[in-house]
Nucleic acid binder design. Structure first.
Lengths: 206, 206
DNA sequence: TGCCAGACCAAGCGCTTGCTTGGTAGTGTA
DNA sequence: TACACTACCAAGCAAGCGCTTGGTCTGGCA
């Protein structure tokens, strides 16, 4: 890609990260962290993918862990915003629930796939203090889910305690990044419906 | 613990691993890999927990990765056997399905919790050749699941394609090791029923 | 009693790691 | 022209890593 072409595409990259020098580092780091894990990825790997020297990374980030944290924060912010919009736009509780599932699947197997995998698999690499910071943002995201699930329960749409259901769905959905193939025979919409079918109270489906 | 007490408990430890010198290393390694991840755990950490020098580890294992591989293989063998027995003992397809879920939850939040977490989170640390070896064993385990799910579908007990359902359940179940607390308000039996309720065809529950 | 094999120690090698340092090129502003 | 600022390079340091080496101790068997 030429420098001109690169500077023209200036808003969002593959995973909701800007095309600034900083953004390019985050984008490269997210891919590498996903491919090899955080610890197996060296700062030299990241620098090489960006096309700079390893020392130059520290002009943009104070430490390797700051890069990891920034990847996580960016992807949570991006996905929280998307989730909130999708829920606001959906007409009823059932539609809101479907929107949540669709949104989260989109995050995990679609545009923010790389960074989301990092969030799950490299969590333990963050220091406790940084974990706490990231969890704070994460809880906003989770609250959107819990509000809808609580409403769904009041309406008798679901049978299971919202906290428990949310956690089972988190697992089912996030695991899909290990197997789901967008080019495969199953469409995302089909997968959304399947997951929705698992979540919703049996009798409401008859 | 005295040496006498240790040698008396001679068969299985916390995670289905023997109480030989080799077994003690595997047991310590499983805990540490789970607590800190594979890469962040040094051979010195493992040796210290066992109470030997780091170099002495290499009298029992050729490399650090061999330790990881051995942890994975042992836990898969142990759980495959348990799964097979549980399925054989269950009377009908519905009972077999319930047994599968119960067994897997037991593996993940019960006795082999540590090693199972390692299996999920440190997978990428294995070389491709070792991944292939471990996958070979894993496929035996998965086949037990698929056989039951295929039968369940023929009987109209489930609605979803076995492959897809298995993967959604894998995620939902394995994620529970991040949140389920055996001392908490929810019993394992309740959790099993909840998961079973999600798997089984809606109309069959009415 | 002599011997051997398994289990372990003490020391350290060679390499990679995250990160620091001192300096340079290019750009915008006054 | 002078200055400031951002982005970057080239070189390398100190620490920590997986693993090796040569040797010691001990229990069991011939």
């Amino acid at each position: 890609m030429t420098a001109t072409a690169r500077s023209r595409r200036k808003t969002l990259q593959v995973n909701g990260i800007e095309d600034s020098p900083r953004g390019k580092v985050l984008s490269a780091a997210a891919s590498l962290f996903r491919e090899q894990g955080y610890e197996r990825t060296t700062v030299r790997d990241i620098a090489a993918r960006v096309g700079i020297q390893s020392g130059s990374l520290f002009h943009h980030f104070a430490s390797k862990e700051e890069i990891l944290k920034a990847v996580m924060i960016d992807v949570i912010r991006f996905n929280t915003e998307r989730l909130q919009h999708a829920v606001a736009a959906a007409p009823g509780t059932r539609a809101k629930l479907r929107a949540l599932i669709e949104c989260e699947l989109q995050s995990i197997i679609g545009d923010t796939r790389e960074a989301m995998a990092v969030l799950v698999y490299s969590w333990a690499a963050l220091s406790p203090a940084n974990q706490k910071d990231v969890l704070g943002l994460r809880s906003v995201y989770e609250q959107v889910w819990l509000d809808v699930l609580t409403a769904a329960r009041k309406e008798g749409l679901i049978d299971v305690e919202p906290f428990v259901l949310r956690r089972l769905l988190t697992g089912a959905i996030s695991w899909s990044n290990t197997w789901y193939d967008p080019q495969g025979p199953m469409s995302i919409a089909q997968l959304v419906d399947t997951v929705l079918g698992m979540a919703i109270r049996p009798s409401k489906e008859c």
